[in-house]
Nucleic acid binder design. Structure first.
Lengths: 119, 119, 119, 119
DNA sequence: GTGGTCTAGACCACG
DNA sequence: GTGGTCTAGACCACG
């Protein structure tokens, strides 16, 4: 899986990596049990600080998306805990995005189409 | 319209206000031509600095949502420019949210329902 | 001559009126000796404060574009003093505009064409 | 690159800095990828507040002229988006300047020569 | 009275 | 060390 950093983005690098890995898991590109690159390897590949990658992995771990241990490194979790709900933060973000899209004259159907595409 | 600040949020205060006003315009709670509170009044009401509110208003102005002048204060714009597209940033955010929702076991229908509700 | 105020502009109203009158004189729409509306009449027509129009007329007078007296009201000057030079402020503005246009990929010819059109 | 502030100017300080940087980029004095001074360094150099410089950088960023991040500081963007058009505001300004120059007895050729020089 | 600008100073997240 | 955010307070031009 290829991680791409947008240097112009306001989203912190560690969050960009985190998001791409989460999307990778969601899309199936990363399956349960799959090994992630070591912190060192990924940092080298992207050309960033190891601390940044480390922060990403710790976040993914605390969110329950991956497991890490010294022996096996980082792996995608086999059974990701399913809360069955959208977090309040994400709901708020969703509402903001829908509002902005609506004010920009984007029809509801087009947003629904994007949901279809991304899901 | 009541503005509520979450002081524990990672979203900067000026952005929280901005988002709520945008959502207020989108929902129709704020109509074109409606007067917004003065910078000082809103700052006092929320209990924050006037500079922070000023930053919000300037952002909303530069985005084309409101107008500001010394005579009329801040008002919702009558004709908001419609780009007809969802910004790349918002698309990326949408994709992230959908991915997370999917991994949490939220069915697609439920997201669609939220879109319906927010639009 | 019709004066149009752009309520969305950052340019102060008194300056917008001033600019339009100067451009009117330059284009010949307003000739030397032509009577300008009274402060009161113009203020009423545009729907603004008389003080604002008054400020405009005082500025135009001090710049040597018009004359004002109680008997004849405001009139375009017959002989406008010609400095034969572009003011330093206008040079700086011109340089800024040219720089921005250049960075936007506007060819020099197009700017020259605009000069032709406006002169 | 040396930034010079005219403290008697009506142009706000943050805008004066912004203009000079834009002109520096246009003239080639500042090339794509070039590092700008840090917010603190520039503030100290000019003898103004860091907030004012920060405002400048955020403006330049939102206009697409520079990028800022915590690692690299502020840098001139490699690829500046080209709208290929002169903004309405700049056209209006240009028209005003041409009108004033014309009334001052400045021949059209001299304005054209300035455009040549600045472009 | 209004928004716009600026200061001096502080704290924070990111890397 | 960097830019980003925020405060408390001040002054200003515009209208």
């Amino acid at each position: 899986m290829i991680i791409k950093i947008d240097e112009y983005s306001d989203v912190p690098i560690y969050m960009q990596i985190r998001n791409q890995i989460v999307m990778g898991i969601s899309s199936g590109e990363l399956a349960g049990g799959d090994q992630l690159p070591t912190v060192r390897a990924l940092a080298l590949e992207i050309g960033i600080n190891t601390m940044t990658v480390s922060k990403t992995y710790q976040m993914l771990k605390s969110e329950g998306y991956i497991t890490t241990d010294r022996k096996n490194g980082a792996r995608v979790r086999q059974q990701i805990e399913q809360s069955k709900v959208i977090s309040e933060d994400n709901k708020r973000e969703l509402r903001r995005i829908v509002s902005e899209a609506r004010l920009s004259g984007v029809p509801k159907k087009e947003i629904q189409k994007l949901i279809d595409e991304y899901y």
